[in-house]
């Protein structure tokens, strides 16, 4: 994360917003605070922040509407902060265009990691290279082949497409519905059984230990996240 960035915190709870301000100031960033949607919109239009942290439970209405408005205007990372058990809300916010989420209570470390990875993604140039790597996995988009270390992975076409989709959207939270639509097609949006079965099969092929997977992380009730620690 570059220093001296402007971070807009949209949060009505003072204890949380103070903690967030403190954490970002410590890292040398500037923060703006908005307690409701109205103020948030004004700050976005006048101050042009680099990142938005948005609490979904705002007093003057729906955070999702704000996400849609911002998405129509600008391309800046939006990270949603939400209470647990709001899975539907989180999915709706992600579908509306939010880039990532954290649930309360969260550790500041976790939040900062999300902010960094989201920003990195925004600056990433999509290479036209047909070879994509992630840690010890390399996939060749043109030849439909994949390697783990120097061992070729025996993948079915669907497994390959799933892995390719994951690697291309590395470190990003991907909702079940989105993965199903993108990999299987629109008609499969609610066919969870396919996704679970194929993720399971893929894990057996790429993970060393399926009970503590390093690549495909489950985001309970939301979707999956494919973890790559190496830069693209």
């Amino acid at each position: 994360m570059k220093p001296h960035q402007l971070i807009l915190i949209v949060e009505d709870d003072e204890a949380i917003s103070r903690l967030l301000q403190l954490s970002f100031k410590q890292l040398g960033h500037k923060t703006l605070l908005a307690k409701d949607r109205q103020n948030a919109l004004r700050e976005i239009q006048t101050r042009n922040p680099d990142i938005i942290l948005l609490d979904l439970g705002l007093p003057d209405g729906d955070g999702k509407e704000l996400i849609k408005t911002v998405r129509a205007l600008l391309s800046i990372p939006i990270i949603v902060v939400s209470a647990r058990s709001d899975e539907e809300e989180i999915i709706a916010a992600l579908d509306a265009g939010a880039d990532d989420y954290v649930t309360k209570p969260f550790s500041t470390n976790e939040l900062l990691a999300r902010v960094r990875s989201t920003q990195r993604r925004f600056m990433m140039h999509h290479s036209s290279d047909s070879l994509i790597t992630c840690n010890d996995i390399t996939i060749d988009v043109e030849n439909f082949s994949a390697l783990k270390g120097d061992q070729p992975l025996k993948l079915t076409p669907t497994e390959f497409n799933l892995l390719k989709y994951f690697v291309l959207h590395r470190n990003q939270v991907l909702t079940h519905g989105k993965i199903l639509k993108e990999v299987w097609g629109i008609a499969y949006e609610y066919e969870m059984q396919y996704l679970r079965t194929y993720v399971n099969a893929l894990r057996k092929k790429i993970e060393t230990n399926t009970t503590s997977p390093l690549y495909i992380q489950t985001e309970l009730g939301i979707g999956y996240r494919f973890i790559c620690t190496t830069p693209n």
């Binding site: 647990r84 058990s85 059984q193 679970r196 993720v199 399971n200 009970t211 997977p213 489950t218 309970l220």
Partner: peptide
């Protein structure tokens, strides 16, 4: 919160296909 949810007959289970090993990991 779970206990309150289970006590209330108006909130049915959110049933879906689960991978048990995955749930243990989480």
């Amino acid at each position: 919160l779970d206990s309150a949810r289970l006590k209330n007959p108006q909130t049915p289970l959110k049933n879906g296909w689960c991978d048990m090993e995955d749930l243990l990991t989480v």
